[in-house]
Amino acid sequence: MSLIIKRIVLDVLKPHEPPIQEFVRRLGEIPHVKSVDISIHEIDENTQTIRITVEGNEILYEEVDKKISELGATIRSVDKVSAEKPKKKK
């Protein structure tokens, strides 16, 4: 049985717009995502470096990447991924 992704930590470069409160709300629209955490690590004249932690059940990395790209940001690195075997239904 293959593992399913429960948590991804990403290093992302984004423009100032949209602000992180909007960014977090939009990432919450991704299917199976249960929680999103964003912290700003660096602020430049035109960009911000942020760390995103996405948690949920069976997170699809492609969906996360697509949403981040739609918002005008780019993933610089995938810093951490947590996965586990799906729980058996009783």
Partner: peptide
């Protein structure tokens, strides 16, 4: 230029 990426197809554009 700052992001070294094309933002043409994004919500920003």
């Amino acid at each position: 230029d700052a992001m070294l990426t094309d933002l043409g197809e994004t919500e920003l554009s």
